[in-house]
Write a protein that binds this DNA or RNA. Sequence first.
DNA 1: ACGACTTGCAACACTGGTGATGCAAGTCTG
DNA 2: CAGACTTGCATCACCAGTGTTGCAAGTCGT
Lengths: 189, 189
Amino acid sequence: MSGTTRALRSDAERTVRMILEAAERVLSRNPAASMEQIAEAAGVARTTVHRRFASREALVEAMARWATQNFAEAVDAASPESAPPLVALYQVTANVLRVKIDWGFTMRVMDADPEAGRVHADISERCDRLLIRARDAGVLRADADLDWTKRVFYALLHEAAAYRDEDPDVLATRVVDTLLRGAGTGRGL
Amino acid sequence: MSGTTRALRSDAERTVRMILEAAERVLSRNPAASMEQIAEAAGVARTTVHRRFASREALVEAMARWATQNFAEAVDAASPESAPPLVALYQVTANVLRVKIDWGFTMRVMDADPEAGRVHADISERCDRLLIRARDAGVLRADADLDWTKRVFYALLHEAAAYRDEDPDVLATRVVDTLLRGAGTGRGL
DNA sequence: ACGACTTGCAACACTGGTGATGCAAGTCTG
DNA sequence: CAGACTTGCATCACCAGTGTTGCAAGTCGT
């Protein structure tokens, strides 16, 4: 592989990343946006997008794989199977938020891609195990419905991601706090 | 208004309702579904749909208004400004869930219609006031971020609506319980 | 049976988005 | 500078979905 090739390839890869990021930006506002709009947002011609991605489907697939990788790395980095449940919960939340803030649209439609869907399902199972550990450690109530709890956890992550400009660590604190303590005082229930 | 006219009009209105319900069913699974698919699900020809609704936009608008009315009635019936906060919270939850389970798609895209958007904004404000009353009554913590709390409340409603087959009252209990107490034990936080 | 009305069907024109291609101009490396 | 490569632009064929219309067949009340 010659130096020339490497340089050009790096240019091409930069363009690809620009397109992927533009697609995320545009599609998160309007999931039905045209390739034209995506190309415009990326600062390239529509033909260029088609040269990089054979079809709209291929583009979304590429987005899914890219986001999936970041997602998986975010989870891995939190050591969810070995760290103390509460710590892991917090770390997973903060790390995933960092990804989700930038890849919200993609992460919503990821499951369509079989490869990404598989990883997603895998992560879902790791989340299950983390919640079980949390329950066994007395962090979650013994009678907590873990399916529901997971749903709530996902939903809170989703809502927190709307606060794009806040510090992910602050958001993570709020998410975990809400998940575990709710917003009530405990009186009168 | 003759008897004939009334009978025919009632037939027509039944068809309209069939179409609206079919549209909700189809679009909730696939927001990009074609008029053809909607017509098929309603058991009518595509032309019939177009005779009732001049355009796709008009159809969605009609859905929005219909769902909005149900939504507003669901909130009203809970007396959110007069009932004790905790009771109102529970009633609002149960009533809204009943509507949201059947009109999930429509309620997600309602804001597009100006009329429906206005009602939606209005209900949002009533929710704000209810949360303030709840906080003043000691149901919510004094330091609760009400904007965040409202978001969480909405998100929990959304998640609960996924359990289409459960009893709305049971779901409401779960939602309010999660909103106020969370899923944790309170230990170690 | 008549009249008012609705429906399904077939056909049509139109639009917007998709994907492909050839070509001239540009950039970067060696 | 020469060569490899990429980009923008103009253009094309194509397709799916939309919205319209005319007509024959059907229903329902009187």
